[in-house]
């Protein structure tokens, strides 16, 4: 990226190309976009339309779908306490994960940007857990937090604390999942660190000449400067929370001590449905009970909620790209 490959530069050439399109100029973009457009049609638009249709039917994937009108939606909103429980669990995870992940990641990043020796090593250490496949990370955590002989409760017992049952206690299972998510949030930490390093040093110099302490400098300079990155973190965490599936399923299966493959109907939500997230219940309804129609109605609900955040994200992105074009 040091020297331009071609030194000849004709000013305005791009302008002429855009203003006066050659005949059939749309063929080229279409050719370039063809796979993606086909993909969008086949894997996004078609399934969404099909989803709407199926959500009004009873369908077990064996017999032809039967139109049942709004019954699935009525059942979802008023008839299914587990769907309510699952929605509660998902909202719990979205809120707690989003708040704690941002606070935690910002805190860790604030320390790590000040590290001057071995910064690369620290960055690797905090990123390793984020790399681990979620199944492996969850297995590791259920072992670390296993109530009988797990290292965490062992260490707690040195301090005279009798550790909770973690993944086996309905009250502690979600907090344990939250810890797991924080442990694997190295990606966000690195992003926030990059944001912090982008803050011009002169701002800090000026602030400290004015007598601002480090807390005030962080509050009045760092935070506003990394606000866009934090917004990204919020959206990213919300999406993460809305999709929460793998860790919940694997933790439930391991903690229940079931011999069945993870995701089997008996162990889902263990203990006491405290890890039953909305996507997990959707999966259970669709692919264990084969209530495909009801699962479609649940999917529509999840889609509507996630769309709200998508709109927010797109809005922000458009603002950013406008700013870019202005510059």
């Amino acid at each position: 990226m040091t020297a331009a490959p071609h030194t000849t530069h004709v000013a305005g050439s791009s302008f002429t190309r855009w203003i006066r399109p050659r005949p059939g100029h749309w063929i080229r973009p279409l050719a370039f976009m063809a796979p993606a457009l086909a993909g969008l049609a086949l894997f996004v638009v078609y399934p969404l339309l099909a989803l709407v249709y199926y959500s009004f039917t009873r369908y077990d994937l064996l017999n032809t779908p039967v139109w049942v009108g709004l019954r699935n939606y009525v059942f979802l909103l008023w008839g299914d306490p587990l769907a309510r429980k699952a929605a509660y669990n998902t909202v719990w995870l979205v809120v707690v994960i989003t708040v704690l992940r941002l606070v935690f990641a910002t805190g860790v990043a604030a320390v790590l940007v000040r590290v001057r020796n071995g910064a690369g090593l620290f960055r690797t250490l905090i990123y390793l857990p984020a790399l681990a496949p979620p199944v492996a990370a969850t297995l590791a955590f259920t072992f670390l937090f296993n109530p009988g002989t797990g290292p965490v409760n062992t260490v707690l017992s040195w301090f005279g604390v009798s550790g909770p049952l973690w993944f086996s206690d309905p009250a502690w299972a979600k907090p344990a999942l939250t810890l797991l998510t924080l442990w694997a949030s190295g990606e966000l930490i690195i992003i926030i660190m990059a944001g912090m390093l982008d803050v011009p040093g002169e701002l800090y110099e000026a602030a400290s000449l004015d007598g601002a302490g480090s807390v005030r400098r962080f509050w009045h300079i760092t935070l506003p400067a990394i606000a866009p990155v934090l917004v990204f973190g919020v959206i990213n965490s919300i999406i993460l929370g809305l999709q929460y599936f793998t860790q919940a399923v694997v933790a439930a299966s391991v903690a229940s001590g079931s011999a069945d493959i993870a995701g089997s109907r008996r162990v889902i939500g263990y203990p006491d449905n405290s890890t039953l997230t909305f996507p997990v219940w959707l999966y259970q309804q669709g692919f264990h009970y084969y209530n495909m129609g009801y699962a479609s109605a649940m999917s529509i609900a999840l889609f509507v909620v996630s769309t709200v955040f998508t709109v927010f994200f797109v809005h922000r992105l458009r603002r950013a790209s406008h700013a870019e074009e202005m510059a």
Binding site: F75, P81, P170, Y289, N291, Y294
Partner: peptide, 30 residues
């Protein structure tokens, strides 16, 4: 399981509610 681990206060009402739920669930697939 929920009752056994102390998560339910009113056993009789809880059983009745679960029974109603079982009947409602059976409607979904039929």
């Amino acid at each position: 399981i929920s009752y056994q681990s102390g998560g339910v206060t009113d056993l009789k009402a809880g059983l009745a509610k679960t029974g109603t739920q079982i009947d409602a669930d059976a409607q979904l697939g039929s």
